[in-house]
Design a protein around this nucleic acid. Sequence first.
DNA 1: CTGAAAGCGCTAACAT
DNA 2: ATGTTAGCGCTTTCAG
Lengths: 362, 362
Amino acid sequence: MKAILANLAYYLKRIVMHKEFQVADSRVTLRDIAREVGVHPSTISRALNPATREMVTAEIAERTLAAAERLGYRPNTFAQSLKTNRSYTVGVLVPDLTNPVFPPIIKGIDRTLEEAGYTVVVANSDNQPDREQMCLERMQERRVDGLILATARLEDPTIERCLREKLPFVLVNRTTAKNDIPSVVADETAGIKMLVQHLTDLGHRRIAMVSGPHHSSTGLWRFEAYVSALRDHGLEFAPELATQSDTFTEEDGQLAAARLLQSGHDFTAIIAGNDMIALGCLSALKNAGLKCPDDISLAGFNDMRFIDRIDPPLTTIRIPLEEMGSYAARMLLGDLNDDPSSPQTIRIVPRLMVRSSTGPAK
Amino acid sequence: MKAILANLAYYLKRIVMHKEFQVADSRVTLRDIAREVGVHPSTISRALNPATREMVTAEIAERTLAAAERLGYRPNTFAQSLKTNRSYTVGVLVPDLTNPVFPPIIKGIDRTLEEAGYTVVVANSDNQPDREQMCLERMQERRVDGLILATARLEDPTIERCLREKLPFVLVNRTTAKNDIPSVVADETAGIKMLVQHLTDLGHRRIAMVSGPHHSSTGLWRFEAYVSALRDHGLEFAPELATQSDTFTEEDGQLAAARLLQSGHDFTAIIAGNDMIALGCLSALKNAGLKCPDDISLAGFNDMRFIDRIDPPLTTIRIPLEEMGSYAARMLLGDLNDDPSSPQTIRIVPRLMVRSSTGPAK
DNA sequence: CTGAAAGCGCTAACAT
DNA sequence: ATGTTAGCGCTTTCAG
């Protein structure tokens, strides 16, 4: 009796659906396959899941797979997630998608995570801390299994929150002051050293810096590396030659460089906090009637796309961005699977790219 | 093959899923709030949903909201989606995230959809049709409510499939041959006309074109617009001056431009299918020992980021990319809400950006 | 090896 | 206005 009612309900459902969706959404469920194969839905579930497939007869497994294929079965991820409490979704938070540094990182993350069966959800914070929190909130609502943050500041409330809420997460590109969170970053010190070496080789002795904001690791550490690299070369650190850009953007880079130029101090080279800031420096130099590299040499950091096509092609430090993203993804996967061998931090060694924006000191 | 790939992803997922997972997730449910407030869970559900809030007493609504806040309640989207069959997720398919054209489009989409309560999932097809199908399959597994495709070719199996499966979707940037699908694209004809006008104003009579691949609307239509714009100016279309780049990349653009140059035909200007191809043309010109714009003028299309910083700054056609994305998102929202007033197609009028890559004809 | 049954957290039709 | 009830589709004990 019960079974009859159940069947009746089923057919009624089909009829209604036929009308509403016009076979649009062939919502095939386990039960449909079960009916086809002539076994219980839970058996179908077992047959479909490779991890439990051995529990069923080879013959049933085969017929199940065939029927699933034939009917165009697609597991309902909501039901799966509701049951297992796993979303197979990872959130990625970036400060600005239109900054060419991030797309390759995302690509690397996506590739690696996709292979592991995860879906990536990218969110743009537009460099605004409150938007960042909003994004995080949404990710939590979406019940992401983990997060990859490319937005880290040295003191970072978003990270504090992830820690507090015990969300598995890793950092990429930037890290925190304590650097105690799994992260994949470039070896900033090594990169800056290469740059200083390159410039001193060209005869530069008065090297200025327009660093990124010191609330981010890439801002502060590159600055500190600059100071110590100068010392290594027996050059004195002159505070008046060090300026800080408020953000990693062309605009603020230009402003900072303009301040530096207006100060009247002399120098023959500038190291910029990254390529974006370098672009700003270039504008400032142009406005001041200075030629690069004839009057002032200029170097950047990141080797972002197209930076070799600008005028003049920029000498910079290449970071394997896609690889960095891929590492971060693997690290997070290690986290999610409680793999203790997963490293706590990776520091990628960068490479000097010499181009035309640096030349002999005047 | 398609099915095998789809299944593979599924299996991989399942294997990992087998592992245990313990999260310190403060899983507050409706029942917890119900207990606090002293009413039935369904009342809480009604109080929490703005659309049904009027069904409950103001006092209970208030206490519910307070309790939800206090307990840190977060609705379980899986349960909601399972019940309502709505995921509030939209998929966006792009051919290449590292092409600077797409991030602004995505940004516009994201912004608009986020406001409407949707989450955006971006997938990268890397210009590979089979990867595109895989991405689509994943999106369907994720049960996206709709799709925005930036990958359209004139004849497009992915689009055919969306149509067949009755997935709500719109196109952005590119469209299909029949152009019968809701889409937001630039007015390619108007853009090319501006370019031809600009070049003829500068005295150019022999204008070549390195178009994008003719299997995409942006490739073919810009080419056709070029032919007809020449006619409008009383210039004869010379087939030997028209080359096609296999893809919208620097590399293929360079190859195509090199072919054009080696052909020995003379011309004084090149219109490139887009800015990426223009970059390739620039390389080809350089390799041929030709100076731009002194020997040959060059123009692109899209006005992508940084194209004004290259050497020489490129004359091109500006498309409001973020706006385009935003329009596409609104269009899809109209679709999802069965809004009949939602337009079927939007053609955005672009703007000529004159820079230094174009000059008087020799 | 397979079936039965429970239930993940939520919504919505129905009942009061 | 609120409670009751019945699932959404799946996984996973527990029986047999």
